Simulated scan of single mutants.
Amino acid sequence: MLLSEPARLDDTSGHRFDAQRHWAASLALRFAHRQGVTRMVQSRHSGPLRVQRPFYPEGRDEACHVYLLHPPGGLVSGDALTIQAHVENGTHALLTTPAANKLYKADSQGVAWTQHTCLSVDDGATLEWLPQETIAFDGSRGEQYTQIDLHGSARCLGWEMMALGRPASELPYVSGRIEQHFRLTLDGKPLWLERQPLDPLHPRFTGRWGQGGATVQATLWAVGIADVAGAIEALREALPDNPRWAVTVRYGVLLLRYLGNARNEAWALCEQAWHLLRPLWIEREAHTPRIWLT
């Protein structure tokens, strides 16, 4: 569901520098079918969160590509980011970002950030949620919530990627805590619910039964593939043969997981899977967003 009004700062929360700080930004989008074209009919924003104009690189009667822009480039203590999108019947939207999202180190007060993503896809609509990866700096503290509500024959394919620390700068993720929540429903019934704490001080972080010390993780999901078993077999045949990824299906949701230590490997795996799955999913070849190539 969409917010009735954009989030606003007030005198008790905005521009504080103590443990009560709260700097909000929100974006609410709505896509509707107009004269045979998917159009972005609503773009309501508050704070530093907005979109560029819609793009139609696949043709005017195909997917509407939209880039979500957050000029600060990342989240700091007290930030509260809310992204909402409603995709109406007969429309096809592809949402992505121009660069990686960064989760910066918490301040001396240890104030957390929050990020909420709420996506609603109507019966007969299609959504692709393909943001670039998230990079968590050492000491980052916050919570991420992703909720996707599907209705009827809605189709959705998306991914989430997380890179912990900055190994190239020899700055691993050794402190802080990030909690991730994911909820995917169909007509109000849960298909996939997940909660994951990322805490380098917890045994799960390094244990072989948990994260095993991996610094990069990714999940790709798809709902609406007619032949899920055939899609899984195609992925297993086409993708690199290594133990860092696996694919399965649960309650009609295809899930591909990566757990390793290389952002580029995770991205290449998910992008290749998307290129392979899209014709099986919606009978359309994947069209790489131009922003990924800049």
Rank of each mutant, 00 (worst) to 15 (best):
L2K: 09
L2E: 13
L2F: 07
S4I: 10
E5F: 06
R8Q: 09
R8W: 04
L9M: 12
D11Q: 15
D11I: 15
S13T: 15
G14H: 08
R16N: 02
F17P: 03
D18G: 02
W23M: 11
A28T: 09
A28Q: 08
R30Q: 08
F31V: 12
F31I: 05
A32C: 04
Q35Y: 12
Q35N: 15
G36Y: 03
T38G: 03
R39P: 01
R39Q: 08
R39A: 01
V41D: 00
V41I: 08
H45Y: 14
L49C: 01
L49H: 01
R50G: 03
Q52P: 02
Q52G: 13
Q52F: 05
P57N: 06
P57V: 06
E58H: 07
C64N: 02
C64F: 02
L68Q: 04
L69Y: 12
P72M: 01
G73C: 03
G73L: 03
S77P: 03
D79I: 06
A80K: 09
L81F: 12
T82K: 12
Q84S: 09
E88G: 01
E88L: 01
A93K: 01
L95Q: 02
P98Q: 12
P98F: 05
N101F: 09
A112V: 14
W113Q: 00
T114P: 01
T117C: 07
T117N: 05
C118G: 07
L119H: 00
D123I: 09
E128L: 10
W129E: 02
I135D: 03
A136V: 09
D138Y: 10
R141M: 15
G142M: 03
Y145H: 14
Y145K: 08
T146R: 04
I148K: 00
H151M: 08
H151F: 10
G152F: 07
S153E: 11
A154Y: 07
R155W: 00
C156T: 00
C156G: 00
L157G: 11
W159I: 10
R166E: 00
P167D: 10
S169P: 00
Y173E: 06
S175K: 07
E179L: 12
E179I: 15
Q180H: 14
Q180E: 15
F182T: 11
G188I: 09
L191G: 11
L193A: 05
E194S: 06
E194D: 14
Q196W: 11
L198R: 12
L198I: 15
P200S: 05
L201R: 14
H202G: 00
G207S: 15
R208T: 14
G210A: 07
G213L: 13
A214G: 07
A214C: 13
A214L: 06
Q217P: 05
A218R: 04
T219L: 13
A222R: 03
V228L: 06
A229E: 08
I232C: 02
D241S: 15
P243M: 04
R244M: 13
V249W: 02
L254R: 02
L254K: 06
L255M: 13
L256K: 03
Y258F: 15
L259G: 09
A262C: 15
N264W: 11
E271N: 12
Q272V: 11
Q272R: 14
Q272Y: 06
H275R: 15
L276P: 13
L277D: 05
R278G: 08
P279Q: 06
W281N: 01
E283F: 01
A286Q: 01
A286D: 01
P289R: 05
W292R: 04
